[in-house]
Nucleic acid binder design. Structure first.
Lengths: 237, 237
DNA sequence: TTTTAAATGATAGTATTACTATCTCATAAA
DNA sequence: TTTATGAGATAGTAATACTATCATTTAAAA
């Protein structure tokens, strides 16, 4: 496994800056390396969160960051690539969190529980990344995430490894499932089911509550319970 | 339960024409009642299937059916409404099929098995509807279906009951789950999980196979097995 | 310190998309 | 015969999704 996360540890100020190494094919120019690039990330998150991906345009983005459309095209081929970039970033960040929280945990059932918690619970912006609001990004992934791969050009995008972070997280989860029960026959499909349902049940809970069993309380812990139940029943030895 | 399906039974010719009664708010003018309207349905299915929803425009649709953009706007407010219409149609049609196939079946476990088969297996165009190719429509629902509700205006669309067919199917499934095990605590969330995963695992199997456990064979029966396993483990008494 | 390259800003322009409006004409029901 | 209805034809607009060019600032290299 190659290094995906770069720790920029400043001992003196006791700040841990987390930098995620992104696939070069996701962008035209690396947005993390310039001021404008970082503004593009920060404000595309805000705008997509606010108005939805369909209403998001480079023109509007350019306006709020005081730049021009052409300026943004220097970083991203089109708005869909920004969406893929943001979701890829999110999945990489989540994989880091999962790895971090599962460190030194040996019991696979505890691993799975912590994992489900990390996947389904609301995210609090953790300040370890300056220009990414993880809380907003999480909500974007819930509401817009699947649009990143539900396209006619999935296969080409996949060849460019644009979905690798998602796949890596899926592999990680599948591995833990197999640790728990090496005989389980569908670890990957169950992993994607957990990931996707963590997001979708949250979306339904808020917007189409009658499609879930937790419309009244709108408590994300109920989603966690549902997923735990689903997973542990399935992989029971 | 109000009548959703209209059977237009022609005894003499032995043809059963199935007509699905659609919510009035889905369209500006009912496309089923005119030649142009039916062409809009037929060819929007073909075009969306062929080029994807993003590349689908009223202009292109108008060209292939020999009409004009303005002509299509007389039937649908915009292309997103066509997508909602098509998915609503599909879910109504599927609910009809499920009800039909589960008729006279009393054992809830057989019901659930038949249901999963109907949800996850490839659809064969059944010729009972002249201008709807159910096979193509099924593939559209797999690849584009969630875009119908993943918008900033879900709640308003929901108030107009545009997602009622989906919800009805969900209720139907949840009911069968409770028949099997009245003590099961998440029947609705499990129902949406079955529906969504039937589609998503199929999509992943074909386009991002490493996210599933059936990438090699690409056999949809493996999706059926996965779902059966998932469901019956969860609701076991 | 000067040269050079990189990053950005400013401006312009095009094809396409997503509509709205209006007017005519054919047809078929009242 | 009147009158709605459905549909074709045409026009026009604002916004979207780009591409191209050139000037300027800034920062790194010589």
């Amino acid at each position: 496994m190659k290094a995906i996360w770069v720790y920029d540890l400043e001992i003196r100020s006791m700040e841990l800056h987390l930098q995620i190494k992104m696939n070069e094919k996701l962008f035209v120019r690396n947005p993390e390396q310039t001021e404008l690039g970082r503004k593009i990330i920060e404000f595309s998150i805000r705008l997509i969160h606010e108005n939805g991906f369909e209403a998001f345009t480079f023109k509007k983005l350019a306006e709020v960051i005081g730049s021009t459309e052409a300026g943004i095209y220097r970083y991203f081929e089109n708005k869909h690539r920004i969406l893929i970039y943001l979701t890829a970033w999110y999945w990489s960040w989540l994989e880091f969190r999962v790895t971090f929280h599962l460190n030194n945990v040996s019991d696979p059932s505890i691993k799975l529980k912590k994992l489900i918690q990390l996947l389904a619970a609301n995210v609090v912006d953790d300040d370890s990344t300056l220009y990414v609001d993880e809380s907003l990004l999480h909500q974007i992934v819930i509401a817009e995430g699947s649009k990143a791969y539900l396209t006619k050009h999935v296969s080409e995008d996949n060849k460019d490894r644009l979905f690798k972070p998602y796949k890596d997280l899926c592999s990680l989860i599948a591995g833990i499932i197999l640790e728990y029960n090496p005989a389980y026959t569908h670890p990957r499909s169950l992993a994607t089911t957990i990931i996707e349902m963590a997001n979708l049940q949250m979306f339904f809970m808020h917007h189409l509550p009658s499609l879930t069993d937790f419309g009244q309380s709108k408590d994300e812990q109920l989603v966690v319970e549902f997923l735990e139940d689903l997973v542990f029943c399935s992989i029971r030895k």
